[in-house]
Design a protein around this nucleic acid. Sequence first.
DNA 1: AAATCCAAAAATATCGATATTTATTGACAT
DNA 2: ATGTCAATAAATATCGATATTTTTGGATTT
Lengths: 220, 220
Amino acid sequence: MNMMDDTGSRETSATRAAYLSLREMILVGDLAAGKKLKIEQLRSMLDVGASPVREALSLLTSDMLVERIDQRGFRAAPVSLANFEEILNLRCTLEDMALRQSIARRTSDWEEHLVLSHHRMKRVVGTDTFEDAHKTFHMTLLGNSESPMLERYCSQLYDLNIRYRYLAAGGARYQSRDIAAEHEDILDAAVKGDADAASVALLSHYRLTGEYLTSQLGGL
Amino acid sequence: MNMMDDTGSRETSATRAAYLSLREMILVGDLAAGKKLKIEQLRSMLDVGASPVREALSLLTSDMLVERIDQRGFRAAPVSLANFEEILNLRCTLEDMALRQSIARRTSDWEEHLVLSHHRMKRVVGTDTFEDAHKTFHMTLLGNSESPMLERYCSQLYDLNIRYRYLAAGGARYQSRDIAAEHEDILDAAVKGDADAASVALLSHYRLTGEYLTSQLGGL
DNA sequence: AAATCCAAAAATATCGATATTTATTGACAT
DNA sequence: ATGTCAATAAATATCGATATTTTTGGATTT
């Protein structure tokens, strides 16, 4: 059997395609938190075999987006206020660490990347692309830390947080706060090399968002 | 075909058995760092099918003990001095956080668990069981933090560190330092509820071990 | 009426086989 | 000799089928 058919594209591998699809569906809430994830169902939904699905679910387990129940399959990781607050705390600690390391090793090359990713985030229009650009900006801030594991943790936690944003607002945008100014503050401090100011700006950015989200997450 | 045969025991699932075996082999160095992990080879070595092996390798990817190379299979995660130092740094930050949270919420129940796990670690004889008891003691220290993700990160990092201990000493024991006294200091401060003292004792415990290991890891 | 147990159904976990991709080797042209 | 290319070999990724386990629903008993 030949797999080069429908869209004509070959997304590197069935496992990766399944992983990305499932991840997105969990992040935005198409697959509800706590919901049982049945192999056969996903298999037909994604049009791949059971093996790639299982492997994708295993990978999502590492991302803490899926839980494996001993001999009883998988389910989308549950959400809770406690979990949200734990994510927020961990992010504050780990991003503070990563940001300071990034700034400590700063180079003009990194600063240029920063300015660029910030600029792109401002220009972007669609919601989807804004999500991507926003994550890129934040990860660029931490991306000079020379600490791949730390960056991986931060990226994971960022994604886990996205989930609560969608949960709070159905995927809609932020509230009335001036997010753009907050981003600008972080950028300026980072480019200036002022680690303390950058850290304060970043953490208050997260804490403000955290408070807003907490207020919206009554039903948990 | 019936799988209830050889040892008469059924280790819950083939995937889990493979996961535990592979993990152990990587930790102690039976599977060398950076080494290609061929499915067929592991399949026959562990006497299971390819699917459980693949799934176990996927899980080990989350533990950062295995790396997946796009369409080219898996390999044991490489080691390096930089990686070791990164692990040490992350452990110091995260365990400090977890320990302080544990102490802040301390209960007599937790204190009793602590004393018990410490006692068991002192009594133990074999190397294998000491490893287990040692990890149990350290994880108990952090186990009252009410922060499952944080504890998971700490556990992961602990395991990654074990690997370097085996690498430095071929699995042998520590050097002449009085480890027992260091453990005692940590325990006492924790039970007393003195977070600062406990944190200092814990971190210096790690930093001393880190220096010793670094000195032994010339060939990286 | 409630609880228990058994049989049927569903779902998971695992295997063996096959298709696809990557790595290797040797021939051929330059 | 050296580099390129094709043919072969090896290994991975994926599928379809099967065995095992868990769940469900109803019949039987207390």
